[in-house]
C-alpha cells in the first residue's frame, strides 16, 4: 500500500469540504418511512423478523427518529429526524477496526465498509456516536418472492458482518462511469441514492459538496443547516435543515 487511508494529523482534515454530501430538510420530512423501505430494497438489507427487530437488531441503515414527551393528552412530539451514517470526514469508526474493514475512500471521501474483511469485533459500532452501524446477528432467510428482488450490484452479507449506509456507492460508481464515458463531469442531481429518490416530500437532497453551485452545497449554507454533534469533530457530510421555530413541536 503506497498510501494509507488514515490521516495522521486531524488538522489535515479540518478544511476539507467532502465530495459527496446530503442535506435533510426536517421541516419537509413527514416521517413516512419510504426512504427506509427504499434503502432496504436497494441495498439487499435482510429482514430480521419481529422478535429480533423488537430486541433492537433490525438492520435498517436509516432510521426515522421521533421522540415523545409528556403524558397524554399533553404530549409534545419532536420533528422527524432521519439518521443514517454521516460519512464523517474524520470518522471514529475507522481507526478502531483491527483489520481495515472500515476504511476511508479517497476517491469519494466516504467511509467504506469492506464486508469481506470484517471479522465482527463490532468495535466500529461502539465507537460510532450516531449509532449508524448494524450487525448481521444471524443468516436471515429470504423466502421465495423476496429472493427475486436482490440487487445484483450489492453484496449479500452473511452472519457476523457489520454494515452501514454507503450513500448507495454502487449508484455513485454507475453515474461516475457514465459521465467519464461521455467525457463530462457528473451533473448536479444526476446521482440520487435510493432514499432521496423515494422521498415524496423531496426532503433528502444529495449532491457534490465540493461544487459550490450544487443544490446541496447551497442548502447547507442557508443558515438553517446544522450537523449532528458537530462538537465531536467528526466532520459529518450530512446537514440537517430546520427553521428556528418548530411549529408547536419539541426542539
Amino acid at each position: 500500500m503506497a498510501k494509507h487511508n488514515i490521516p495522521e494529523v486531524k488538522a489535515d482534515l479540518e478544511n476539507t469540504t467532502g465530495i459527496w454530501g446530503m442535506a435533510i430538510d426536517q421541516d419537509l420530512c413527514t416521517g413516512c418511512q419510504a426512504c427506509v423501505a427504499a434503502c432496504a430494497m436497494e441495498n439487499n438489507i435482510a429482514f430480521v423478523g419481529e422478535t429480533d427487530a423488537g430486541y433492537g437488531r433490525s438492520l435498517h441503515w436509516l432510521r426515522i427518529e421521533h421522540a415523545f414527551e409528556g403524558e397524554f393528552p399533553e404530549v409534545q412530539t419532536s420533528g422527524f429526524q432521519p439518521v443514517l451514517c454521516q460519512q464523517c470526514g474524520n470518522a471514529p469508526c475507522e481507526p478502531v477496526c483491527p483489520v481495515f474493514a472500515s476504511v476511508h475512500s479517497q476517491a469519494q471521501d466516504l467511509n467504506l465498509q469492506v464486508y469481506n474483511r470484517c471479522v465482527g469485533t463490532r468495535y466500529c459500532a461502539n465507537n460510532c456516536p450516531y449509532v449508524a452501524r448494524v450487525f448481521n446477528m444471524r443468516d436471515y432467510d429470504r423466502p421465495e418472492p423476496l429472493s427475486n428482488q436482490l440487487n445484483p450490484d450489492v453484496t449479500v452479507r452473511r452472519r457476523g458482518i457489520m454494515e452501514k449506509c454507503t450513500f448507495c456507492i454502487q449508484r455513485i460508481h454507475k453515474v461516475e462511469d457514465q459521465a467519464k464515458s461521455e467525457g463530462r463531469e457528473v451533473l448536479d442531481g444526476e446521482m440520487q441514492p435510493a432514499c432521496a429518490q423515494a422521498c415524496p416530500a423531496d426532503a433528502i437532497i444529495f449532491g457534490r459538496l465540493d461544487d459550490p453551485e450544487s443544490r446541496v452545497s447551497k442548502l447547507a449554507k442557508t443558515g438553517r443547516g446544522s450537523q449532528l454533534f458537530e462538537d465531536l469533530g467528526t466532520l459529518p457530510r450530512v446537514t440537517y435543515l430546520k427553521e428556528e421555530k418548530d411549529y408547536g413541536r419539541l426542539g
Binding site: 433492537g56 461502539n126 448494524v134 450487525f135 452472519r159 457476523g160
Partner: peptide, 14 residues
C-alpha cells in the same frame, strides 16, 4: 447460528 443466539443487540454490541 451467529451471534443472534447471544444477547448482543444495537447499541449493546459488546
Amino acid at each position: 447460528n451467529g451471534l443472534g443466539v447471544a444477547g448482543v443487540n444495537r447499541p449493546i454490541y459488546w
